[in-house]
Design a protein around this nucleic acid. Structure first.
Lengths: 210, 210
DNA sequence: TAGATTGTTAATCGATTAACAATC
DNA sequence: TAGATTGTTAATCGATTAACAATC
């Protein structure tokens, strides 16, 4: 009995469920119904149930609310938050520096182990205890630590050439914070953090166009 | 003849189209077919056409490619990038500071005019030429400048109480960078920038689960 | 004109919701 | 048991794709 594949829409909802469940646990609540979750999500109970069924190895008991702690564990496992992946960050500007200082990524299963830049003033300094290296040292460190994930926070003007280098050096996944379209080979995964899209939605909701 | 309403899915695609068109213009290309755009987006030509039709006041001519510059203008207008909205930023930590320094928001029709914090060391300093005020001064400045948009980059622990204050002070739209669920009244729009969701998608694509 | 590309209508596909039996 | 809540199947809804006529 194979599981149905999860869709991107669902995948986007899981972290929201998780946040809500964490806040429930913080308030000392340890049971929750799909109805309660649905109210928070502004969606139907059925959707909540389907989503949760997909990450649960065994069925929940009809009639009984689900256990908050158990759900939290299921979601964390499903989202891979329980095992840490190491990543490098390329481009230690304002945003890059902020991301390096952000401790929350560890909760999401991601650890930035080092930053890379070409600015001599930054090289061999640290941010939040993490070293910043010369970009030239990247291949060596990727090799040593077997890292295949890169966070991209470079200036637009050098982003494509940087991505090309990353691919050459064996990076297989890029989390891209640069607001532009970047080309990668088919076997490399690139996921864009799209501020512009989020802002576009906000603007439209302000203008009641949705 | 009224236009069909735009869906959130479509809305998310428009900034991607725009970026692609801008890069085409940069390369000196001034004509584009829906086929070319579809290839970049990894979607069908028909979808591109439908999307573009929705933002175009008059029909494109069959048989002739669309004009890149004209499309750029249409998209900018549609996304509201041509008129600037003023916003305040609440919580000048690492991320807040990075956002205040980010010049790109002007291209998206958003200008951060001031930051607010409770840390005395920050108050009355500036970041990227923008003043940082005591949070206590927020109502006065919102009133003076008729600002109704706030960017939230506070610590988790104080985020809900901060949001409650913002709502009291008349804020109507919140762009939330804090990774937690926040409650707002129905007449206030809140849009979450969801790093966790983006990261979840990346992880799953890495693991070939999608 | 012929080829390319468009917009429109119809068909398909997938996600969401509704209905309801099952169970604690 | 009765009420609440669940999972499952079927129906609905909306978005995407396919087919094709229209036009430059």
């Amino acid at each position: 009995m194979e599981k149905k594949k999860v869709s991107i829409r669902q995948l986007e909802r899981y972290p929201v469920y998780l946040n809500f469940l964490l806040s429930l646990r913080n308030s000392g609540i340890d049971k929750v119904s799909s109805k309660q979750i649905a109210e928070m999500m502004l969606c139907s109970e059925e959707q909540v149930r389907k989503d949760l069924q997909l990450v649960s190895p065994k069925k929940a008991s009809p009639g009984r609310q689900r256990d908050v702690g158990a759900l939290i564990n299921l979601l964390k496992n499903f989202l891979g938050y329980n095992k840490i992946n190491e990543a490098v960050l390329i481009g230690v500007g304002h945003l890059g520096g902020a991301l390096m200082s952000f401790k929350g990524f560890l909760d999401f299963g991601l650890e930035i182990v080092a930053g890379f830049d070409v600015n001599p003033a930054l090289i061999n300094t640290t941010i939040a205890g993490k070293p910043i290296y010369d970009l030239a040292e990247l291949p060596r460190i990727l090799e040593e630590r077997k890292i295949t994930i890169a966070i991209l926070t470079t200036p637009k003007s050098v982003s494509q050439e940087t991505v090309d280098k990353l691919v050459d050096f064996g990076i297989k996944a890029i989390w891209n914070y640069v607001p532009m379209h970047l080309n990668v080979p088919k076997d490399v995964v690139i996921e864009n953090v799209d501020f512009a899209a989020s802002l576009a939605i906000l603007s439209h909701r302000i203008n009641r166009k949705i």
